[in-house]
Design a protein around this nucleic acid. Structure first.
Lengths: 328, 328
DNA sequence: TTGTATGCGTTATCAA
DNA sequence: TTGATAACGCATACAA
């Protein structure tokens, strides 16, 4: 049997209430008894039962992280930031994969909620309508590391449309006209906004071409997509890819087809996982501060859980660009 | 206030015990009342409080995953397998990063333990002595996805020394004599065993050279290491690297120094994260079934928690090789 | 088949 | 400054 607060109390000749006070740093304990109790706690190697504590206090010091795919470098980089900050504030993290499945997302939310987490953090940004209806009724804080069109949810992200707009504008000035935009097909709210922004930049520069949009998720799909583009006599001279992996696949596709990058084709990725860095040629990317997004998101969540912050806030982090070997 | 089992009981005109029985699928409930209770549960949208349930039943349906770095593809691939299986068996996962720090490892263990997890799974394999002493006293199941020299702990892994031995033997037959072995510096138990195996293969083939061993962790460190090797007039003609990233850095180092791979230098990595696949030239690797290690580890843990399996077991998964562009 | 009562290990309220 | 004692929301042994 594990040691309980009663054992400590008995051994220290005090009531369990006093032990509890010592445990929780309550000042109303005589220094001498505090010392005595602490000694017993140490001697018995007593560790408070967090579950009982959670039931009694209604605070579990646990948060839920709902994440599309932990093995995706993009998300796991955010998760690392989240983890580091949650450790600082002594919160445990329960993770839930969704595989971008709306049903799983909803189920994850409900499970976490029944586990009495003190707050929930979403990594990603494709919240299903059904999930959102349930979220409405939830009275613990929620932070979204990503975008949400629902305004009653705090968010942390960068302004992707602005970042992409800047990139596209530069490319157009370098003579690019035929843009291919490759998105994931999830997170439609954000991805559509980016697509519209690319088109808007073209329009604004008086260029009449329309962007070509594709969905692709993997490196392999990137290779295949580039194959198809070549075979379809596409005049593409610029690629904007949401994902590093897909951009990398397309980049390696160019090698197979003797297309010169960046002279004949510029490629820009909107992520910057370590993969972009380790590619040869090295991918140009938007330098998204992934770790910081997670860290700031978790810090915001702690404030909300602690009632230090009560308003819904939308944090936009600064970003830079890694102009590397796939852009001029 | 959240809805409790009492609310459901009152609304359904039964006692809370009956509601509990319905909740837990206890057959001793008249079909009619069961239906009625279920109807009320649905109507009130009642969700059992998992914390209270955990306190009462001493089962939290939660496990702890102690992991060096969630943002490392090697571990996150294992974690994904773990996650998928834990979802099947309705377990929640609390994650804890250790950053390969023995103190954090121990602290993670104690925190998880005080959170009353039903079992713990380690990803990695560098268990500190201090951690192990504490583990000895722990009476819930533990599984190690990796190696452990302590025999009272179930493990799931592949036989790395055998795999590497096979690779090295082949390389020697192709005339390689000057081996560089690059490890992480952590997991010394396993990494030393691999180093010894490489040397043993050389000895067995009557080759008198001694292996050169280095520690490196990142892509950048791989590049730098290769730089240093070239500048030191090393005659290296074969590299065995624990990590994909490091192997990739060295590989790209060869490009900068006009060293022909695989003709002048063969490189073999002992992991196979997606990075190896996305490198150009593509890295040859030991095809470690990372996802399966996690999945099998979690499955084993469920059996242990469920007392279906009671003995310490050591699972060795089969492996293959990806002979790609960095080996002959 | 159902209900009552107790306990799980804490926190928190009230008295003392 | 301390100690009883009542929650917390559920599972479960025991009765009925």
């Amino acid at each position: 049997m594990a040691i309980t607060i009663y054992d400590v109390a008995r051994e220290a000749n005090v009531s369990m209430a006093t032990v509890s006070r010592v445990l929780n740093g309550n000042p109303n304990v005589k220094p001498d008894t505090r010392r005595r109790v602490k000694e017993v706690i140490k001697r018995l190697n007593y560790k408070p039962n967090a579950v009982a504590r959670g039931l009694a206090s209604k605070k579990t010091k646990t948060i839920g992280a709902i994440i599309p795919d932990v093995s995706d470098l993009y998300y796991s980089a955010i998760l690392k930031g989240l983890e580091d900050v949650s450790e600082m504030y002594q919160y445990q993290i329960i993770i839930s994969n969704t595989d971008n499945d709306a049903n799983k997302e909803l189920k994850a939310f409900e499970t976490l909620s029944s586990n009495q987490v003190d707050g929930i953090i979403f990594l990603g940004g494709s919240l299903d309508e059904a999930t959102h209806e349930v979220i409405e009724q939830y009275d613990n804080p929620i932070v979204m590391c990503g975008y949400s069109k629902h305004k009653n949810m705090s968010t942390v992200n960068i302004n992707y449309p602005d970042a992409v707009g800047e990139v596209v504008s530069d490319m157009i000035k370098r003579g690019r006209e035929n843009f291919v935009y490759v998105k994931s097909g999830y997170h439609s709210f954000l991805e559509d906004a980016i697509g519209e922004r690319i088109q808007a930049e073209l329009d604004a520069h008086g260029i009449s071409t329309k962007i070509d949009t594709y969905d692709a998720l993997t490196y392999e799909a990137g290779i295949e997509l580039f194959d198809n583009l070549v075979n379809s006599d596409s005049k593409v001279d610029a690629v904007i890819s949401i994902s590093d992996e897909v951009a990398g696949g397309m980049l390696h596709g160019t090698l197979d087809h003797n297309v010169n990058v960046p002279e004949d084709l510029e490629i820009m990725s909107c992520s910057n996982t370590r993969i972009a860095y380790m590619m040869r040629p090295q991918l140009s990317t938007i330098a998204v501060p992934l770790y910081d997004i997670g860290a700031v998101g978790m810090r915001l969540l702690t404030k909300l859980m602690n009632k230090e912050e009560t308003e819904i806030t939308h944090v936009e982090l600064p970003y830079k660009f890694n102009y590397s070997e796939t852009t001029l």
